[in-house]
Nucleic acid binder design. Sequence first.
DNA 1: GAATTTACTTGAACAGTGTTCAATAAAATT
DNA 2: AATTTTATTGAACACTGTTCAAGTAAATTC
Lengths: 202, 202
Amino acid sequence: MGRGQKVEYGQLRATVIEVSTEMVMAHGSTSLSIRKIAKKIGCAVGTIYNVFSNLDEIILTVNSTTLSELQSRLLADTGQKDDALAALIGLGQSYVAFCRENYNLWSLVLEHKLAPGSTLPEWHQQQVDDLFLLVTRMTAPLVADDNERAERAARVLWAGLHGICALAMSGKLDVVHAESAEVLAESLVRNYLLGLRAEDMV
Amino acid sequence: MGRGQKVEYGQLRATVIEVSTEMVMAHGSTSLSIRKIAKKIGCAVGTIYNVFSNLDEIILTVNSTTLSELQSRLLADTGQKDDALAALIGLGQSYVAFCRENYNLWSLVLEHKLAPGSTLPEWHQQQVDDLFLLVTRMTAPLVADDNERAERAARVLWAGLHGICALAMSGKLDVVHAESAEVLAESLVRNYLLGLRAEDMV
DNA sequence: GAATTTACTTGAACAGTGTTCAATAAAATT
DNA sequence: AATTTTATTGAACACTGTTCAAGTAAATTC
């Protein structure tokens, strides 16, 4: 078929993702380029465009497995907890730990900006939704009988944890003497949820 | 002096920043390039390198005025409030409003990553510190006698607000039916601070 | 006033980037 | 064996930031 030997579609895709993931993990998101991937695999740039429509699709695919692994981790770490507050604090700690341990891969997820006018692929959006649903389910017991408030709380906590991790990882929280992201995350989750409960008692 | 007419150093710097700011405001951070700036000004690329050492310094300078304007706004909006809780909620609202009204310029601030190994210029770091100090001062009355806790609260609130704005602006909080960043910011600030107070009463 | 030095602008050149596509070569089919 | 189909290739295009030798105009010196 080709000038060289035929490589199976799925196999090549897998190799591209594997190599890309390694590159990002080792040298950060800026080190990723089609030419470098091609060189590392040992094929021409055009060959990669045969199995991925562009670099963005490669990034999206790498990000997809990162999201999967975050979800697995959060599910594993927060499975066996009775106390809803303790469970959510644990969720925050897991999230922070994941960010720490997967700095470059998680940065790739956060840095991704979808082209204006386009939307995320459905399969990718579903992953984000699933992840968020996990948080919503965990906040539900704390604000019984009010689905809207549970969702709002989930959104605030999710965004808040994201903010802590984003600023902590980029060093932008290192004002004077930085506290660890773990301490801040616990403070956020505990006090926000305490506040929600206090609000109920008024 | 030059092949063309001499342009004063400070004047050229100002023009570069002016043009750059316009470009970012109008077409986003990705639209900024040395060549486009040069074309818009009507000079050669090298001329720009005469007054700025590289693109990063241009971005940093644009970001500096953005930070100044954010600080001015926060100071103006939160000046005349007695109630510390109300003042901090107002701060959150101001921050969200600023992000909304200056989306592209604020994105430029957030997207900036300093080259590994280097540190922010002192004058820029000072601006960030000042901004953060503003929040710390406002949290202080709420956790009297404990400077450490006040700082931690400031960090959590600052990071949390950042997370809400970042996710809301990038559309990543649009799960199912998104609530406005303003509502989420108020929920964060109010309940987190309520929680802090509740913690004291235990 | 003329010659020289100094200072600044210029844009081609370099090393990158993503993406496209005509040419090529090997496998599959006739 | 000839033909068709199909995947691979890498040069080419349009960008990017950055550098620097060459050129020019102003300032200085003689």
